[in-house]
Design a binder for these strands. Structure first.
Lengths: 224, 224
DNA sequence: CAGGTGTGTGACGCGTTCGTGACGGGATTG
DNA sequence: CAATCCCGTCACGAACGCGTCACACACCTG
């Protein structure tokens, strides 16, 4: 398992020393005004306090997004209350997710593990690039050499999941799970149709065919 | 002559006490994180520092614009240098004008008096451009290739909100909130009608259709 | 080559979502 | 106070997305 970087802003960081330091799996650091720095290679998860009547939380979120070293972090805003306006502003500032706080240390860990297992369903301003392919999470649009690719929602989710797990055989079960379709149970053969439709959409936009079939196993998103 | 409210952010406000307090003509106040408040009735002029590597100035500008009590203020961004990108971002955040600082106190007064004497030219530089589309905040008018687009107030607000948040999916909830219609609760389907009316207005003016539907998600203002 | 397994894809149908004309009430204007 | 404008809601038809099926084809094995 990858080592995971978890960053916390001041209030959550107060109890930072209470966290269980399992060095094989987690590193912890405070998010301070001096800006973020990633301790080790690996996914980065940031929890940022929403501070009432002070936009420091939003500001911190924007800075994470603006810094290329941390732009890919998964940012969770910790809101004080479940206010629609606050949620909106948090997501607009580039947060991937929000949760109503305060969070205990176990809640933070639980959340990271849950997000990890889900493959971190992100829906904010992050942008993923892989060669000629560019996936804009905010606009929910993919581009090939800058040319927009018309994708239906399911095709976009599929492509995104592939892009998040490149060079790795994904079984039909993986794909069904990765797209969050457990109920009602989906026929595995349906995945074949998803693939076909995605391939057609990519070809129609002049894109190549990065999706390779691995017979009796699944599919691979070939990068490089 | 009306009494004039002048607001300054921290750096300029440092020397606030040195300003000549002519109570018949001016009131002064700092723009603080607690948000703006208008001291007396009358035109309001705000000078907001652009802070390098920190978007607090833009955020302040957006808050002024978002608050109905101060949405009509004349906002001047005080830039550190004459950078095109900064100018663009300032105007996009809702600024009416910009000037390269730092400003002395007499410069601020001179500028207010000058702007006042020009009267109608308020908001002169308040325009947002996106390709062929040009939105004039002051005249509440949008143009396509210079050709005026007849928009009703609600349509203009909608277009403006889209232009402020290009290339990202805006949910119907976002749009309702962005247009400040919280009470009474608006049926989300109403947004569809807004979109339809705005699209028709844009097409009628020869404009393209920059509004893309993202099924089951919302709408995107596609820029480029 | 025959038999078996696995994959690609056109077609179909159902449920969801969207676009829009129509209507009515409230605000605005003259 | 009448005329006009603006806008929120409704309802209906159209468009769309997607899961499934069926069949053709590809690949492997002996």
């Amino acid at each position: 398992m990858d080592v995971v970087n978890i960053f916390l802003t001041s209030e959550l960081g107060e109890s930072l020393d209470d966290f269980i330091h399992d060095q094989r799996r987690f590193t912890f650091d405070r998010l301070g005004p001096e800006g973020p720095r990633r301790l080790v290679e690996g996914p980065m998860w940031a929890f940022i306090d929403w501070v009432m009547d002070d936009l420091a939380g939003l500001e911190m979120c924007r800075r994470l997004r603006a810094d290329p070293r941390t732009a890919d972090a998964h940012v969770t805003m910790v809101l004080e209350e479940n206010d629609a306006e606050d949620r909106r502003r948090a997501l607009r500032a580039g947060a991937d997710d929000y949760v109503v706080g305060p969070l205990t240390r176990t809640a933070v860990l639980d959340r990271v593990l849950a997000l990890q297992s889900r493959g971190a369903e992100r829906h904010a301003t992050s942008r993923f690039e892989a060669g000629a392919l560019c996936i804009d999470m905010a606009a929910l649009q993919a581009r090939w050499n800058g040319e927009p690719i018309m994708l239906r929602p399911n095709e976009f989710r599929l492509l995104r999941f592939f892009a998040e797990n490149p060079n790795r055989v994904l079984t039909r079960e993986d794909l069904i799970g990765g797209l969050g379709k457990r109920e009602p149970p989906i026929d595995e053969r349906t995945v074949d149709v998803w693939i076909g439709r995605l391939r057609r959409a990519l070809k129609g936009a002049g894109g190549g065919n990065p999706l390779r079939t691995v017979r009796s196993m699944g599919y691979v998103f070939d990068l490089n």
